[in-house]
Design a protein around this nucleic acid. Structure first.
Lengths: 328, 328
DNA sequence: CCAACTAATGCTCAGGCGGAGTATATGCTA
DNA sequence: TAGCATATACTCCGCCTGAGCATTAGTTGG
């Protein structure tokens, strides 16, 4: 009997392939698994990191593994001693310029994994980091971070103005990505924003081969190789997913208050939500049921405890439709 | 040939892990690219096939390729002598049965590609097939195909009833997948429906190792290995994508009438749409602009010709939002 | 020229959903 | 007991969307 794996529907991230690679030698091509492991604790979305918080966990795809996904689960659970609630493939890279050499090629298959509790790690170099450590501009829960206006945008504008022929195009791209000039902020554009900063040369990853440029002006911790880019892909995917698939419940305890649930979603989305409407959304869709118990937390009126109605995963097809389809 | 292990992830509820397997340890890993190449002609969505329409085109990933995507483009364009408008990664899996030998394993990376015109192929064994040849139950433009009620559902019900303990669960899954018992038909569940038929043993792919079962009862052409499964993934992805990203325009001529555009979307979705609302949707979003010309087709009032406003790709972030996010 | 037909285009209407706000309930602590 | 903090209930309104009716602009056959 295999352990059940959750149903996943892959959606691809936009963007090109900039490969990432780690370890693994041998002639020909090697396969490497890279994990974006997410949990939410203390009101922060966290990701499992290694190497002084500068790398995502990764490991070779081994022959004992039944499948790529099984391989993912196997070594993650071996490392964390914790079951993985939800796993979804993110993207596969194999880029030459970031590889090991002309005769070497590494194929990296990245996965997003959700886990409910914070595992204790085997290795001591592992740690859970708020993902906003790497993407400070993505957290708007307390309003727009001042650094955006003070540091990020001036640098981006300079980037736009640097090439007159591309000025308008770049300025527009900046406006779309960061929600300027009346355009709405879209929390799903994590990857696009990262890419933009990369192209503008504002982050360390883009300056590795150009030490003459000095330190990168933009805040936010960097990672080895393309790991920050993979993380951006994972965040974007998760932010999109929570809107049409009940994956949040993989990140909260078995029973929870609606506010806890909301805080979790807010942590992931990096935005605050309207409390009453959030409740309406969740309850109307019958995603949860009352346990009958009440939260002991108790500042203010105690909140009812709820649990996820797992049945919804089978009773409905949890996907969206937007075309003007005729009912007749 | 042995039954191909399956690597794509089921969106099905109690999705089990049918991950692809590998048997052996060895130094080398080969990478293989598989393409779902789509075009729409003659009111039919078509897919490029090989080997007597039983295989998707595929080719090795070579060290000369800059990236996976570049590799895809390279050999597709070499084969078809036609540029690829849009390319998107579908899924990566490692399949035991594709291995070249005990010390080899193959990683398959599948891609979806859209092309505007029907290329003339180099090899004569290549042909464009309506994808409904492989999935007849997916075309509801002329109403629900009679074969669903006559062949498909009776067999599925038998499958559900076969195991009393699973009866309810299976019956429910059937209802959700095929839009029964008041549940709506969801054209995006292509993969789930295929999976269901596979698990129910109703299609040739599932019976390859069980010749005693005789011919599969369900109509629809099969393919080698799990190519039909990959095709299902591609169709599902495309059907989902057209709802929030203007990819249809990659499939129609440079100028087109709104009805042409609608027919194209309908071909992909397998459903008819409300004409006036379709126009409203397209024009309100300013996805198109008039060319000033008029269609010469001329049965009935001549239709204005339009062209896609490529600018929308940069002026807006073309993605959706469904959370009750506070504007303040 | 008119009638009939086909398809394009314009317009209206009603229901539902989502964003936002107000009001009330229920626990605590000072 | 007042005040506070949070939970929960309900209302309002605008927009989107499904659906249908009406009109326009061509062609084709008498």
């Amino acid at each position: 009997m295999t352990r059940p794996e959750r149903a996943l529907q892959p959606t691809s991230p936009a963007g090109s392939d900039r490969g990432s690679s780690t370890s693994v030698a041998g002639p020909g091509v090697a396969a490497n698994l890279i994990a974006v492991l997410v949990s939410v604790t203390g009101g922060e979305p966290r990701v499992l990191t290694l190497q002084d918080a500068r790398a995502l966990p990764s490991g070779p795809f081994e022959l004992t593994h039944r499948s790529l996904q099984a391989g993912m689960r196997a070594w993650v659970e071996r490392q964390t001693h914790h079951p993985l609630g939800y796993v979804e493939q993110l993207y596969t890279f194999a880029d030459r310029d970031r590889g090991l050499g002309p005769d070497q090629r590494v194929i990296s298959i990245s996965y997003l994994g959700l886990t409910r509790e914070q595992p204790t790690m085997a290795g001591d170099e592992a740690s859970w980091q708020s993902w906003y450590v790497y993407f400070p501009w993505e957290d708007r829960r307390l309003g727009v971070p001042p650094a955006i206006e003070e540091v990020l945008l001036p640098n981006l504008r300079a980037f736009a103005d640097a090439v007159p022929a591309l000025r308008r195009q770049r300025a527009n791209r900046i406006a779309v990505s960061f929600g300027l000039e009346g355009k709405p902020w879209n929390e799903e554009l994590v990857l696009q924003r990262y890419e933009l900063l990369y192209e503008a040369g504002l982050i360390p990853e883009a300056r590795r081969q150009k030490p003459e440029l000095g330190p990168a002006p933009v805040q936010g911790r960097s990672m080895i190789l393309d790991h920050r880019r993979i993380l951006a892909t994972g965040i974007a995917r998760l932010r999109a997913k929570i809107k049409y698939h009940p994956v949040v419940f993989e990140l909260v305890p078995d029973t929870f208050t609606l506010l806890q649930l909301q805080r979790c979603v807010e942590a992931l989305a990096g935005r605050l939500m309207h409390k009453q409407n959030f409740r309406r959304l969740v309850t109307q869709q019958e995603l949860v049921e009352e346990t009958g118990e009440v939260s002991q937390d108790t500042r203010g009126r105690p909140a009812k405890l709820f649990r996820f109605r797992r049945e919804v995963l089978t009773e409905r097809a949890v996907v969206g439709t937007k075309l003007p389809i005729s009912r007749s």
